[in-house]
Design a protein around this nucleic acid. Structure first.
Lengths: 162, 162
DNA sequence: GCTCATTTGTTGCATATGCAACATAGGAGG
DNA sequence: CCTCCTATGTTGCATATGCAACAAATGAGC
């Protein structure tokens, strides 16, 4: 008996030219933009965007949060978050507090210095993002966001915020 | 005398909501897509996309090429390329050959194993890219590529190729 | 031709990262 | 309660990375 083979897992699919162009552009431009912003933060002697996102997610949650509930939206692996929190804790930006319902884990919460740091970072992050993205207008940005989200199968909103 | 201050370096520009959404989508989706493809290569016990790009750029050049002429299109720093070539040379995929006109540097050229490896990688890379990008159609991909290139201030074509 | 700044590439060292193994707690099934 | 499987984090170790210092060669100005 013969299995249908027309499009489903046909042998060696080659991406179409438009797909290849999108792939390349995605890789290059995302790298360039990210580096531009990270560079601005580094120049201001501030931590990078990963730290910002952790602080912001914790702040946005509005209550102490478990690492596992952070790892998923952050798209990072547990062990990455573990060491990230190590460093942030060393720098006094977050604290691990005991978790009553599950003694394995703990809850993460920004310290006062953590809240302050996020605000300080945003003062650099926001203009840098604006600079890095200023070649496209708002209408284009919206189309871009929608296309990217479709590509990623996502429909989050969630802007970083002041 | 007073300097114009209306839009040029006005204090603390906040990115518009569409810009913020585009920024977030760009970060998340590019990461997700890249990881998906890198994962496919890793699962096939092949080197990652960086190696592919080096091999492909060398092959595309059609002649032995200086590191400095590669570093720019690859968007990587000289010392990164230096060690990358170290590893690729160890694996017998490229060779450094003496450069007649400039004794500081050398010319890079794929070995036979290097050409073979690029072909072998493409057999995994291409379907993985196709899978990762299959949520958008060709027309959308083209719009996406154009928007990204405008955002990055770029107008390369250059698809990877079989 | 000599000197010096620049270009090109590499490397020592401290830090960061990925992976697999580990530790510990929770929860299901008996 | 006991056992075993899963979930949640952490860590040892090998490797990779960023940065700044370095080496070597070129080329410009005198």
């Amino acid at each position: 008996m013969r299995v249908q083979q027309t499009q489903l897992k046909g042998p060696a699919r080659i991406p179409s030219d438009p797909i290849q162009r999108a792939w390349i552009a995605l890789g290059r431009v995302s790298q360039a933009i990210r580096e531009e912003v990270d560079q601005a933060l580094k120049a201001a002697k501030l931590p990078d965007t990963t730290w910002y996102t952790v602080l912001w997610e914790l702040e946005r949650a509005g209550k102490p949060t478990r690492p596992k509930d952070l790892a998923i939206p952050l798209f990072i692996l547990p062990y990455q978050l573990s060491r990230l929190v190590d460093r942030m804790e060393e720098d006094g930006l977050v604290k691990r507090i005991a978790c009553p319902e599950d003694k394995r884990g703990h809850l993460l919460e920004p310290t006062d210095a953590g809240y302050a740091m996020r605000r300080q970072m945003w003062a650099v992050y926001a203009p840098a993002m604006d600079d890095a993205m200023n070649r496209i207008g708002d209408e284009e940005a919206l189309v871009l966001a929608q296309l990217l989200n479709k590509l990623g199968g996502v429909n989050y909103p969630v802007p970083p915020k002041p």
